[in-house]
Amino acid sequence: MGRSPKPQTFLARASYRQRRLRDAAKVLPIVGGLLFMAPLLWPREAVAEGGNGTSHAILYLFGVWTALIVVAFVLARIIRPTEDDDIQQPPEQSPGSGPQAGGR
């Protein structure tokens, strides 16, 4: 079985930016999940007195939802998914050199 080349350790500026954007895309659902869980921490007594918790929750939840969609839209626009292979060689390395020749 061919050895697959190790992911590059040091990247050019553009590839580095792409990696970090991908990290952002990975963190986004976690942040979203936490924000969606946040209303569970709201004080129940105050709600019981005020009696308008549901409408607040609707505004909050749909607000968070919209924000997530907007951020996801922006990320989908700037991340280039065609360059998503972790084994992709940066252009400065000549094709077919090194371990890649055996790996594919």
Binding site: M37, L40, V47, T54, A57, I58
Partner: peptide
């Protein structure tokens, strides 16, 4: 929103277990 606040489901009494579990 006023109607919602006046309705039987106006209270935010969501059980946490079900909220997290069902998500």
């Amino acid at each position: 929103l006023d109607l919602i606040d006046a309705s039987p489901i106006s209270d935010w009494t969501q059980p946490g277990g079900r909220w997290v579990g069902l998500t």
